[in-house]
Every structure is written in C-alpha cells, then in structure tokens.
C-alpha cells in the first residue's frame, strides 16, 4: 500500500484541478479551440506527457479505472511509469483492457477497440498548433484561427503533393472540427484519424509545455483535410498481424534478427491479446494458453 497522505488526490491541488477543469469545459464548449491554461510543474520533464497527466489528474475520481498506453502498448516504460504514478497518487484501479477502462491516457495512438459513452480519452500533445511549422509567430497563428484563415494549411498539403506526388503527412494529420477550427490531433498515425470523428467518448488533448488544452466532444465531426482530387486515405502497412491475424489494425514493424527479418504486430497490445485469447492465431503466433 502506498502512503497517500503525502499527496493530494491525483497529485494536483484542488485549485489547480479547478483551473484545469475550467479550461477543459471551455475546450468542450468550443470543439477544436486551443484553450490556454497555467500548466504546472510535474514530476516528469516536458516532453514526457505532462499535459496529458494534468488533464487526467483533473478528471480522475476515486471510482475510475485507468488505462495508460504509449504507442498503443501498455507495457512500455512511459505507460508503466504514468500508470504507477496515478496508482501512487490517486490509488485508482488500473487495467489494460480498453473496454473496462473509464479514463484512457494515450501517447500517439487511438485504441483499436471502439470506445463507448462515458469513457474519456486523454491525448498527450507535443505541439498543439497545426500551423506552427508553417507560421512560427504565435500572434499570427492565433489570428488565423480567429479569422478561420486556413489557406496556409492547404498550402502545406499542396507542397506535399507537388514534392512527393501525394500528401506525405503520415501522422499528426490536421483535421477540421465541426467545420470551424483546424486541430492537431497529436502525433497519431493518419490511420487513426477516422476514429476521431463520431467517437462516443470524450476526447481531451493536453499540451503541458505549450500550455494548451483542447477537446473533441462526443460524436463531433472531425474531417481530415485534403484536396478534392487527392482525397484523404487512412493507410497502414499492407499486412495482417503476425500474432493474431487481425487484418485491419495498425501494425508495428519489428526487426527480429540481424539479417533483417521482420514481423508485423498489432500496435495495440490489448487488442492483440484479446484476439489471441479469443482463439485467433497469426502466421507467427502461438495459441494462447487458457483461451
């Protein structure tokens, strides 16, 4: 058992949580709009998910069941650390099963399993401003959002097509939310973009270093930007999962030896494990014990 009297519930003090909740409310009221908030110093450096952690901390209640994934996996270092952090400071139950979680904090992926009403998905966002790499001035990008002046966004896509013959953006693909704000969905692969719109869960985005929070309320529309003659295509590796034979999940490519042999496995570990438990076996998989 951890000594919970050392920290307030979920680490942050109540005033801070109140401030973050106000920012979240504003974000939910204006889908896709980046709300500035006073990001606190967290016990992890910038770039390690401080924004997502603050949003999660503000949302957690003692009855919640938390899942944390990093690039789809529950067992990588960051996911483990953040999960342990909340176990220590909030004492909430944790799970690896997407369907059982009430709050899911994710870095750079959306779980394959469709989410339901009542679930909250919290994204860790490095650079919240979709226009940042084209227009470095914050004063200018704010005006562009205010005036819906998004020509520059399409300029970037135009440049991609003229240089590469196709829209080369593979992740961090900008979307237009409810026909108004252009939003950076965090560096999720463009394969995940279709899951953003019409999603039953509340999706919250936290950028700690940049001090912004934004939100995608349930069932809101999020349309990936494209051209009429170069439509958006959610692409993935042309392969099925080697462990569970799933044909339509996002895959990680794993190099298995020095000769360059590789295998493709589901990026979403929980999804893969559930499928294997249900009896699906891929070309390189072995049947799971206790199916």
């Amino acid at each position: 058992m951890t000594d919970q009297t050392a920290y307030n519930f979920a680490y942050l003090d109540e005033q801070t949580k109140r401030m973050i909740r106000r920012a979240i409310l504003k974000g939910v009221a204006i889908p896709g709009y980046q709300v500035p908030f006073a990001s606190r110093e967290m016990p992890m450096p910038y770039g390690w998910g401080t924004g997502g952690v603050q949003v999660t901390a503000a949302c957690l209640v003692p009855e919640d069941r938390l899942k944390v994934i990093d690039q789809g996996a529950d067992d990588t270092t960051n996911a483990v650390s953040i999960r342990r952090f909340f176990q220590r400071t909030a004492g909430v139950a944790v799970t690896e099963a997407t369907a059982e979680a009430t709050v899911i904090q994710t870095r750079h992926r959306i779980p394959e399993t469709p989410l339901t009403e009542g679930q909250i998905l919290v994204y860790q966002v490095p650079i919240p401003e979709p226009l940042r790499f084209l227009e470095p001035r914050e004063t200018e990008t704010r005006k562009m959002h205010e005036l819906e002046d998004y020509g520059l966004m399409h300029v970037k896509l135009y440049e991609d097509i003229s240089r590469h013959g196709q829209i080369a953006t593979a992740y961090d693909y900008p979307v237009k939310v409810e026909g108004r704000y252009v939003m950076d969905p965090s560096p999720i692969p463009k394969f995940d973009n279709p899951k953003l719109g019409g999603n039953a869960a509340i999706q919250l985005f936290g950028a700690g270093r940049e001090q912004r929070i934004y939100a995608l309320p349930p069932y809101n529309e999020a349309i990936s930007l494209d051209f009429d003659d170069y439509p958006f295509a959610a692409s993935k590796a042309d392969h099925a999962c080697d462990l569970c034979a799933a044909p339509d999940s996002y895959l990680d490519e794993v190099i298995t030896d020095d000769q360059g042999s590789r295998m493709f496995v589901c990026s979403d570990t929980d999804f893969c494990a559930s499928r294997r438990k249900a009896g699906h076996v891929g070309p390189m998989g072995t049947p799971m014990a206790g199916g």
Partner: peptide
Amino acid sequence: ERLMAVGARHY
C-alpha cells in the same frame, strides 16, 4: 495560397 484561403480545394 490566396485561392486556397478563399476555399479552392482542387489541387
């Protein structure tokens, strides 16, 4: 750019 800013969407 100006064309795209006023809504042109056909590359």
